[in-house]
């Protein structure tokens, strides 16, 4: 294959499921090689460290799941100061939803950094204004911890469940190319069931001590996010952008909008077409 970018990524993904795939950057003229090295030093340092010349030698490649980094999706923004559905919670950058700008494709190599800066500015302003309105003792003494999953389990903490095991299971459902680059209704349903049971264990029993609390909380977020993403993928009965259903290959006009999931333990999924109507008016 001469170029594996764009639509041909699918061929690369299929080949990776079958076995190892190798690449070589042999279409770059010597001048371009120099420019690439100078412009993207972070891309070439790894080759230099292994001792490979990527312009003439073959190297093994893979595809990486990036989650919300470079991707799309995130916590829904409800106002122009980046407030969310949770009072006092303001979001920015990769944590905030970006589909308003990027649609159904990645904002990586594109708008993500400028979005991080702009939304950070707006969210910072929003959060500080919110805080200013609530200064004083009354507010401070009323502050209480809210975090549950991974911090304060709903039932008894158990040593039978660990953060690393939770992360391992979620990864095994959301990162394999056969399950998530190419999706099917049946596969997503199976993943959904497994993630549901992991989520229940996390919610009821996962807890850590000291620094480990960061770990258990991260594992809880990963379990929650994995569960949401699989549920949303199952709900979207079409293919669009990075969402490829091999059992439903075409785009459906009924899904030409974002999906918003509300709720943690029990959640519901709804389309967000009203937002598009507002923008258009």
């Amino acid at each position: 294959m001469r170029n594996g970018i764009g639509d041909r990524e699918e061929e690369v993904a299929r080949a990776l499921i079958d076995g190892p795939v190798y690449a070589r950057l042999d279409q770059a003229e010597p001048a371009l090689q120099g420019w690439l090295r100078q412009g993207q030093p972070n891309c070439f340092v790894p080759y230099d460290r292994v001792g490979i010349d990527p312009f003439s030698e073959l190297f093994r490649i893979t595809l990486r799941a990036e989650g919300t980094v470079r991707g799309t999706g995130g916590i829904d923004i409800v106002s122009d100061d980046c407030a969310t559905g949770v009072p006092g919670l303001y979001v920015a950058g990769d944590a905030a939803s970006r589909e308003m700008m990027t649609g159904a494709v990645s904002g990586g190599g594109a708008v993500n950094s400028s979005w991080a800066l702009a939304s950070g500015w707006w969210a910072g302003k929003g959060a500080s204004t919110h805080a200013k309105r609530r200064t004083g003792k009354a507010f401070r003494s009323a502050v209480q911890s809210l975090g549950q999953a991974g911090l304060r389990p709903a039932s008894s903490a158990s040593a039978d469940i660990s953060a690393s095991e939770v992360i391992e299971v979620v990864r095994s459902e959301v990162t394999p190319l056969g399950k998530n680059f190419f999706r099917t209704g049946e596969g997503l349903e199976k993943s959904g069931e497994r993630l549901e049971s992991v989520w229940r264990d996390v919610r009821d029993h996962l807890q850590g001590e000291g620094l480990d609390r960061v770990r258990t909380r991260e594992a809880a977020s990963i379990a929650a996010a994995g569960r949401w993403s699989v549920a949303a993928a199952l709900h979207r009965t079409e293919s669009r952008g990075m969402h490829r259903r091999t059992d439903l290959p075409g785009k459906s006009p009924a899904f030409a909008h974002r999906l918003v999931i509300t709720g943690v333990d029990e959640f519901r999924i709804a389309g967000a077409p009203e937002r598009l109507a507002e923008l258009a008016s």
């Binding site: 371009l32 420019w35 690439l36 090295r37 100078q38 412009g39 993207q40 030093p41 972070n42 070439f44 340092v45 230099d48 460290r49």
Partner: peptide, 28 residues
């Protein structure tokens, strides 16, 4: 000569950021 090779490639000197003025991506 691998110690510091990433910082040298980036153009960072003595812990200070810099080097983007040498970025020729616009030419590409």
């Amino acid at each position: 000569r691998l110690f510091g090779s990433y910082a040298r490639a980036l153009g960072w000197k003595r812990g200070k950021a810099g080097g983007s003025e040498f970025d020729p991506t616009h030419r590409i």
